[in-house]
Design a protein around this nucleic acid. Structure first.
Lengths: 172, 172
DNA sequence: GAAACCGATGTCAGTTGCTGTCATCACCCT
DNA sequence: AGGGTGATGACAGCAACTGACATCGGTTTC
């Protein structure tokens, strides 16, 4: 991350990273599948957290509300490392390949959440749609949260975005 | 596409493609930014079509309905080349890098649609959320359409998915 | 306590995607 | 005829990644 911030992602070579870490290039690739993956180390943990949170949400909640509730549980996790999150996001925003990787992680997250919903008894097109909609809320929320100057509560922003989504999809 | 289908995307080298096309590797890269981009040639046209359709949608329509209406206009375009779409989708489904590329094209589409909505006077978090929700509908719809054995009308499937989305996000 | 074992690392060679640079060549314009 | 121009080829080079094998420190086993 230091190197990616200093010179940018493309201008940083794997050899550079390995040198800075006191390792070989080959060893780098034993820990990370590729150069991008370094920035997505925590994705698995986040996914696990959210899937469990969906599973543990009160049974009475509608699908989308269960997802929103799950998203809120991730608030503290982010709040702990706001500066880290900002720096990471700046790096990703500056590079298309990294955005691609981020999007596929989110897609994997959506698929996992849809599965969790199905395990709650949610039907089939509904589970996928609720999961995708939930991820949309997450994206918008995270973007707002990371760019706000005065740090707002992540959970609060989730609730606001969810209400916006409901307003936008309501009716007719 | 022939080569990608025969041997798979990874097993096909750019030199292979160039040879089959009777060109040089260098020339290939003058037409396509990279090896993946070949499969996403039409993305720009689709984006233009949808953006215009959103702009031209009846002013009375709510944001999400304007997006859904736009999606329906793409129906004939797909119906014309169903077999092509299926083959393409099979190739993409088999390779993670291609999925990444597809996701970023969809993200770009969402951003363009959100802009079109803003030009209609839709407010700020709402435009992004409606666009993302619309893309979610598109993804689910397209997946169903491409996998159905008996070809169903794309527009019809869009309407069904939209209703599902509304049901799932309704309430509380 | 030596031997077999094992997981992490290094070394090296090779393939492939992709880029920059310059040459070539067909075609058009005057 | 000569000079521009746009598309292509030829070639060299970098960097991401991979496979195969060697090394080596620590642990288990007899």
């Amino acid at each position: 991350m230091e190197l990616y911030s200093e010179r940018g992602f493309e201008q940083t070579t794997v050899a550079d990273i390995a040198a800075r870490a006191g390792l070989t290039e080959r060893t780098f690739f034993r820990y990370f599948a590729d150069k991008r993956e370094v920035l997505f180390d925590g994705a698995g943990a986040l996914q696990e957290l959210l899937v469990n949170a969906v599973a543990d949400a009160p049974g009475a909640l509608a699908p989308i509300d269960a997802v929103a509730a799950a998203l809120q549980t991730a608030g503290p996790l982010f709040a702990e490392r706001r500066e880290f999150a900002r720096q990471r996001q700046r790096i990703i925003a500056a590079n298309a390949e990294l955005q691609e990787r981020e999007l596929i992680k989110l897609a994997s997250l959506a698929a996992a959440i849809a599965d969790a919903l199905r395990r709650r008894g949610v039907g089939d097109p509904a589970a996928d749609l609720a999961a995708e909609a939930g991820i949309a809320v997450f994206k918008i929320t995270f973007e707002r949260w990371v760019n706000e100057d005065n740090q707002q509560d992540f959970g609060q922003l989730v609730r606001e975005s969810l209400l916006e989504l409901k307003a936008v999809t309501a009716g007719a």
